[in-house]
Design a protein around this nucleic acid. Structure first.
Lengths: 110, 110
DNA sequence: ACATCTATATAGTAATACTAAGTAGATGGT
DNA sequence: ACCATCTACTTAGTATTACTATATAGATGT
């Protein structure tokens, strides 16, 4: 799918939160997961800036661990604030998605 | 719904295109429609900048008409490029919405 | 020695929604 | 006549976000 950049604004961070909530993971792996989900053009620079933002906003806990196949990894887990943020994200997403659906389906005007 | 700003990035322009596609309309009316749709915090400055962008990108035709209850209105209609853009918008939206749903529902990881 | 894959970091850019302030026409109340 | 209110459009500046581009570095294979 071509150039989703602008439409990913505001939702990519939520995707990252959701992925971290599933299991402890690290940046490089998150990029691969987003790519295999279908967001093929999401690159490392984008995800690392999101992760640094999450850290700055104290939504995650971090543990550095060595890797056997490359440089050390920074593993992320959500803390309570992060879980709250994720819940808020999905509430907003569901709201917007329902409104968009309303807009798209309502052929009688709005 | 609180602060949807960041999540509206990339989709608000599509909403405006969709609203215009339904019937010839003008900025102030578009704001009211977005508000009644549920995007209550969308204000005039936001919509007018979008409309000027649509005009700059040659996606709309414009006709100025007098109003009986206030200053003259700028009425917008989509041209062919605008209709194409709207179609592209919905394709992207559907793609993202389906992926978000996949992400949310897939409890077995991604 | 070099390429490749893994892994993180960061300065700078572009795009977008929002803030805030202004201008102006029409109507109604005082 | 004056002011508030609703209607209606404009625009300079700001904040946030995803992306670009580049850099650094560990491990493996040729």
């Amino acid at each position: 799918m071509e150039n989703l950049t602008e439409m990913l604004k505001g939702i990519l961070e939520g995707c990252v939160l959701e992925i971290i909530s599933r299991k402890e993971t690290y940046g490089y792996e998150i990029v691969k997961k987003l790519n295999s989900l279908g967001f093929e053009d999401v690159v490392e620079g984008t995800v690392y800036t999101i992760l640094l933002r999450l850290e700055k906003n104290k939504l995650v806990e971090i543990q550095k661990k060595p890797s056997e196949i490359g440089p050390p990894r920074k593993f992320y887990t959500l803390n309570n604030a992060g879980r709250n943020q994720l819940q808020t994200f999905w509430r907003k997403w569901d709201f917007i998605a329902s409104k968009m659906n309303e807009l798209k389906e309502n052929q009688d005007g709005i």
